[in-house]
Amino acid sequence: MDLLSHEHYCTAIERLTDELRRTLNGADLDAHVPTCPEWTLRDLAVHVGGAHRWAGEIVRTRATDELPDEKVPDFTPASDDPAVLDAWLAAGAAGTATALREAGAGAEVWSWSWDASAGFWARRMALETVVHLADAALAANLPYAVSPELAADTIDEWLQIVSFAQAEGDEEAAELRGAGRSLHLHATDVPDAEWLIELTDDGFTWRRAHAKATVALRGPLTDLMLVFNRRLAPGSDRVEVLGDAELLDFWLERSSFG
C-alpha cells in the first residue's frame, strides 16, 4: 500500500478545515450531529480543532510521551463566539500543517500507533478531518464530497487501525475472527478501489483485491468510506449489500471503538 505524500496530507489538513469552516458558517452550532449523537456542531468543531493543535504540538516539540491537553497552547477556543471559533479552527490547522512541514514525515515523535513519526500524524489528522467534515455536512444538511485518493486512504487507514487494535487486545476488535468468512468492498466509480477482508481463527487480514466474498458492499467510493466509518447505514439506497448482510453488521459493530 502506497501512502500519499507528506505534503498532500499537510495541504489536506488546511483545505479540509477550510471546508469545515464553510460548512459551519451560518449553521446552528447547537444542532446535534446525528452521526456523533453526544455532540453538537460546536462540540465537533472544538474536537477537530483541538485534535489538530494536540498533534501539531506533539510534532513541534518532538514529544516522546503522550501530551496532556493542558500542555497544548490554545487547546480550546477563547469563547463560544462563532467568529472566534472560525479563526481558531483556521489558525490551528495552519499551525499544525506548518509544524508537520518543518518536521518532515520521518521525524520521530510519540504516537499511540504502530508508527511513531510526524508522517503518521499528518495522515491521521488529514483523515480525521475527512470523516468529521462528513459529520458536519450531514448535520448541516449540506452536500459532502471527498477526493478518491483520500476516501480510499481513509478505508486503508481504518483497516490498519482495527488490525492494530486487535493486536493490542481490544475486546471488540478481538471478536473479528472466524475462518471461512470474508468481506469485499467494491467501489463502482473508481477503478481498482476494492478491498478484501478475510477473517481467520487468529484474526483478520486485508488487501486490495477483487474476489468473491461472504458479503460484498458495492457503491461509490465515498459512500463505501462513509459506511465503513459508520457515517452511512449499510441499508442506504446509495450502496448495495450482496450476500451475508449480518457479517457486515458484525464487522461494523466490532470496529466502532474510539
Rank of each mutant, 00 (worst) to 15 (best):
L3E: 11
H6Y: 01
H8V: 14
H8P: 07
Y9A: 09
A12L: 06
E19M: 02
R22V: 15
A27F: 00
A27T: 04
A27Q: 07
V33H: 13
P34K: 11
C36L: 15
L41K: 07
R53G: 04
T61E: 00
R62F: 00
T64F: 01
L67W: 00
L67M: 04
T76N: 14
D80G: 14
D81H: 03
D86T: 10
W88F: 04
A91Q: 04
G92I: 06
A93W: 05
G95D: 07
G95R: 02
G95E: 03
T96F: 01
A97M: 14
R101E: 04
G104T: 09
G106P: 14
E108K: 08
D115R: 13
F120I: 01
F120K: 06
R124E: 07
V130W: 11
L138H: 09
V146G: 08
A152L: 11
D153A: 15
T154V: 04
L159G: 06
A165D: 09
Q166V: 06
G169N: 00
E175W: 05
R177C: 12
G178Y: 03
H186K: 11
H186N: 12
W195S: 05
T200I: 07
F204C: 08
R208Q: 14
A213L: 13
V215T: 15
P220K: 13
D223M: 10
V227Y: 00
R231V: 15
A233T: 15
D237Y: 03
G243T: 11
A245F: 02
L247Y: 10
F257V: 05
